[in-house]
């Protein structure tokens, strides 16, 4: 029966939807998170919330077929927040469960290739977080950064920072999704700030910055300018590597 499914928007929720689709023989034409669908025009919709027992059974089934690596890929597809993600995950899982062999490497298949492509996009965005996060030291000795990734990759990105910056307090805040991850020199904590200390342009306000901070940013900008070879100037290439939308987070592109 063609159905419109509303779920709670969590990854466990999606897995539960997959379970129910099998059990209740549902064929959804649309699966969307509840927040996007407050006043639905459809009356024939089914609401599904995460059920740990059901989602675990799906996870175990997937684990046997495509191992942890494959499940990580599906989680990345989920983090893409693309409107197609729920149906794609469902379609992908159906393929996996119905075929005798592990078809996770059959890139002739549309859902398999599409998952691969989205994973590539997510990995690129994670890599960009590693590259473009810029910490600014605040008066209370926290190295803080604001950022607005294209996809919800903050949680997937912070392990790298935890390994690297073990002896300093740091905070990376996703402005778009309004949450941040804070490291207190021991562990990572997800935080939400009630009193944001950044401007409308997402710049951390100067009055909270440590004394020497601006000077260091200007030094970095000076380095950035001096290391460029004027005779080789190639703004097209520069723009391809450093897309406009990241500029406001980079001192080398905001300081004049």
């Amino acid at each position: 029966m063609p159905t419109n499914i509303i779920y709670d928007g969590s990854f466990e929720g999606i897995l539960t939807v997959i379970f129910d689709c099998y059990e209740r023989k549902l064929e959804p034409f649309c699966i969307s998170p509840r927040s996007n669908n407050q006043s639905s025009l459809f009356s024939d919709r089914i609401e599904i919330d995460a059920d740990p027992e059901k989602s675990n059974r799906v996870l175990n089934g997937l684990f046997k077929k495509i191992s942890k690596n494959g499940i990580d890929k599906l989680y990345k597809v989920f983090c893409s927040e693309l409107p197609e993600r729920e149906l794609l995950i469902l379609e992908y899982c159906k393929k996996i469960f119905t075929s005798k062999y592990n078809i996770a490497n059959d890139f002739r298949s549309q859902p398999v290739l599409r998952v691969q492509q989205i994973v590539k996009m997510i990995n690129r965005e994670i890599h960009r977080m590693h590259a473009f996060v810029r910490f600014q030291k605040t008066k209370d000795d926290i190295y803080a950064a604001t950022i607005k990734p294209d996809f919800d990759v903050l949680a997937l990105s912070v392990d790298h920072f935890k390994k690297r910056y073990q002896d300093q307090l740091w905070l990376i805040y996703d402005i778009k999704r309004d949450y941040g991850i804070y490291y207190d020199k021991a562990e990572l904590k997800t935080v939400q700030l009630n009193n944001p200390v950044w401007t409308e342009r997402h710049q951390i306000k100067e009055e909270v910055l440590a004394e020497n901070e601006k000077r260091l940013q200007i030094m970095w900008k000076k380095y950035f300018d001096s290391t460029c070879i004027e005779e080789r100037k190639n703004m097209k290439l520069h723009l391809r590597h450093v897309p406009h939308r990241y500029w406001r987070y980079l001192p080398e592109k905001t300081i004049l």
Binding site: H127, A131, Q166, C228, R232, L237
Partner: peptide
């Protein structure tokens, strides 16, 4: 302080594209 994992990271690109 610091960690190197084998994978390089380009933190920025100068205006010559390097």
């Amino acid at each position: 302080l610091g960690n190197s994992t084998g994978m390089g990271i380009c933190h920025s690109y100068s205006e010559d594209g390097r």
